[in-house]
Design a protein around this nucleic acid. Structure first.
Lengths: 159, 159
DNA sequence: TCTATCTAGGACTGAAAGAGTCCTGAATCG
DNA sequence: CGATTCAGGACTCTTTCAGTCCTAGATAGA
């Protein structure tokens, strides 16, 4: 849980591929499928979703394929993931108001909402271009501290 | 996807409950189950996991129940979630080295690892005490910007 | 000592979501 | 025309979630 689907993985790989290959050149689903050993039918569907979402432009016919519809800097990982997997839902509470028995008893909704928002912002802050650079920018530690100052942050566990 | 399980939800609700009820008093699984309308057997298992993980102390017998084994400030949501659902896995790549065909082709692993780490830090930075306060501390916007400066962060979408 | 109350935990079932295959159709280039 | 490539529906298989059921120990109090 709290896991990316493989389709989202595939989509990010494909987007990164399209961002690194020479300048807006298009690549077919098969090209990418071969390069990364991704099952072609699945990758096709993923690319179709990205195209429908407007992140990719497609060209049919021989020598057709996909290319980024905007600059890699202007495509966020959040957009990509949401295009492929649908809305990101941390808990059912936010969307499913019916499922939540009573608003009074569900005391963690608001705190969780902030966690949820934090994840969204994190994903929104990373572009495909960021993923494409070999040596990505360092992330200052302070960025991840949610509270103003807090000494308790434990050493990061393995998983 | 990228979703918390209900069990994790239940666990956080229970932890918050134990943190807010008067000072280390213990509550039974049934108490909590009734208060939030959570199926008792499920909540029991969740509480057992939290106890085994050392976040809760349990007392058996009549008038037994659970209480926090440390201060609420010293229990992070990350610990809680990991105790209940097991390790948080963003993609299979990190753990399942066998599943990844070839390290060269999987070009997004390193970028994703950073996203993953960011989520872990976010969760590690929020304690049960933070969830228990009625008006939680404001989160400065800057905290969520991954890149040093970057104007592209789009308005946060609904989901 | 007996009983009600709690925790501890295994076994099982049904529903939902993920991952992947298969098949058909339509556009386009040569 | 015919190879190539996108578009997309239908279906299967597997895993995971969510939840129920049942049994076994510990403990406080009558």
């Amino acid at each position: 849980m709290l896991k990316l689907t493989k389709k989202a993985d595939y989509g990010l790989i494909a987007l990164r591929h399209l961002a690194t290959t020479s300048e807006g050149r298009s690549a077919s689903a098969k090209d990418i499928s071969d390069a990364y050993r991704i099952p072609l039918p699945i990758l096709s569907k993923v690319l179709q979703k990205l195209a429908r979402a407007g992140l990719l432009a497609s060209e049919q016919g021989t020598n057709g394929g996909y290319r980024l519809s905007r600059r890699a800097e202007e495509i966020t990982t959040l957009e990509a993931i949401r295009s492929i997997d649908g809305p990101i839902i941390l808990t059912a509470c936010f969307t499913d108001h019916a499922g939540c028995n009573q608003s009074e008893s569900c005391t963690v909704r608001e705190p969780l909402r902030r966690v949820h928002e934090g994840i969204l912002r994190l994903l929104a802050s990373i572009s495909i271009a960021d993923m494409a650079t070999d040596r990505p920018p360092q992330i200052p530690d302070e960025i991840f501290q949610l509270q103003p100052v807090r000494q308790m942050t434990p050493a990061l566990p393995k998983a």
